[in-house]
Amino acid sequence: MQGRGEESLLVRRLGRRRVRGLKYTLLAVPFVIYIFAMNYVPLIGWLYSVFDYKLGQRFLDFGNMVFVGLDNFKKLYNERSEVMRVLRNTLVMSGLGLLATPLPVVFAILFNEIKGKHFKKFVQTTTTLPNFISWITVYGIAFAFFSVNGFVSTVLRQFGIEPSPTGILGDVDKVWFLQWFLGIWKSFGWSAIIYIAAIVGIDSELFDAARVDGADKLQTIWHITVPGILPTYVVMFLLAVSNILTNGFDQYFMFYNPLVADRIEVLDYYVYKVGFIINDYPYSITLGMLKSLLSIALLFTANGLSKKIRGDAIV
């Protein structure tokens, strides 16, 4: 009874809406705390780019943190040849990825022309499956195909050709190409879905009009389907551009081996290597922090570009 009396006092003071609003905010507090603990506390860890961190030290033990200034940034400069190599690998892999962006578009257009309903479903189910298996599994499959005793070597031997003794997985000249190929294999069917949706969204009257005007299939595709998908493609391309520093860690971690190290170490892998193999936490944190900040800057740039080109933001 007393509680009710208090509540009504609060309601009288603030109004029913404000009280309800306050209740919702209070309900959201646990979520905010949770997100803070999981996602923002690690950000505070960026402090270690200017403070020293010894293995086993307590996290954010402010009393015992030694300020080291810009030591880690100087290190970045001193090791610039190494950093440039990693950056080269990163940009090569991202650049190849950008080159492959038209592929899902072509696939979506072809897919849209399939007549049989069941065949269509079958194609979509099978081509999107690789997107949902882990890179560990992809590595297991790639091992079966591209290792010394793998499928490819077996085929070559059948034709009397002696395969390279390291297998393709250990061939430094082929590593970029192989990783590119695997990336496409895993994602093309999945990436195509958004374009398939875009094609479905094109006004069907346009197609009818084209048919009445006597346009054949190729002309219809070129003059109606392609322009219809273009805005979606521009968005996806800009997103990919803003992601050029991020290749993903799993793939490069799995396929890393000493033979191909020189060309497979991308930024995401390098951050791991410096942190967990060399055990230089502060330097790894510095690299990761710079990568994160640059990525956000790129995302804003892409967003600005998108606003300019399409009059609409992407994020």
Partner: peptide, 21 residues
């Protein structure tokens, strides 16, 4: 509150900060 949560999608701290946290 909504933005506070959504921003985390774009702002990753990195592997080592995650690990020590």
């Amino acid at each position: 509150i909504y933005r506070f949560v959504i921003i985390t999608m774009y702002l990753g701290a990195g592997l080592v900060p995650y690990y020590i946290t």
